[in-house]
């Protein structure tokens, strides 16, 4: 117990000099700018190029990963911990790669199977509702000669 107390004291002392308010504000501005870019892309650019939604989604994933990195590394201070500590967090998190890939793949496969073997379901979910104009239909089709 006595050992533990001294450990906390020294840790605290060494971190006191490491606390950097400037880095915190820099992180804040980075996060804010990324969010603003996402907002502009999502609001003004992506709705006009719906056929390219997949590419916009990839862009959003990159932005999200960047924001997650800055929150974990700077706000949660993980970047400044020792390597073994970082690894006990980062290595289990790699499980997410399998988790996401496997389940999205499965969902996609189920969609195709169902559309193949359940024509009623396919008809139900691909026939537009009558008297309800699909919003976005007017901008969904790529304009001839539209620059993307």
């Amino acid at each position: 117990m006595a050992n533990f107390e001294t450990t906390t004291q020294t840790e605290q002392h060494s971190e006191e000099h490491g606390f950097d308010t400037k880095a915190i504000w820099r992180t804040f501005w980075i996060l804010l700018v990324i969010t603003c870019i996402e907002l502009v892309v999502g609001m003004f650019i992506a709705p006009h190029y719906h056929p390219y939604k997949l590419w916009f989604n990839i862009l959003y994933i990159i932005f999200t990963a960047a924001k997650a990195f800055y929150i974990i590394a700077e706000f949660m201070h993980l970047r400044h911990e020792i390597k073994n500590m970082i690894m006990t967090i980062a290595v289990p998190a790699l499980l997410f790669i399998w988790f996401i890939a496997a389940f999205l793949w499965d969902g996609n496969s189920y969609k195709h199977l169902r559309n193949n073997y359940d024509p009623h379901h396919k008809e139900q979910t691909t026939t537009p509702v009558k008297n309800a104009p699909a919003h976005g239909e007017h901008e969904e089709l790529p304009k001839p000669g539209a620059v993307h």
């Binding site: 969902g107 996609n108 189920y110 396919k122 979910t125 691909t126």
Partner: peptide, 9 residues
């Protein structure tokens, strides 16, 4: 995400 990937719309 899985449910969304398995939906037609």
């Amino acid at each position: 995400g899985t449910v969304r990937f398995s939906s037609n719309g």
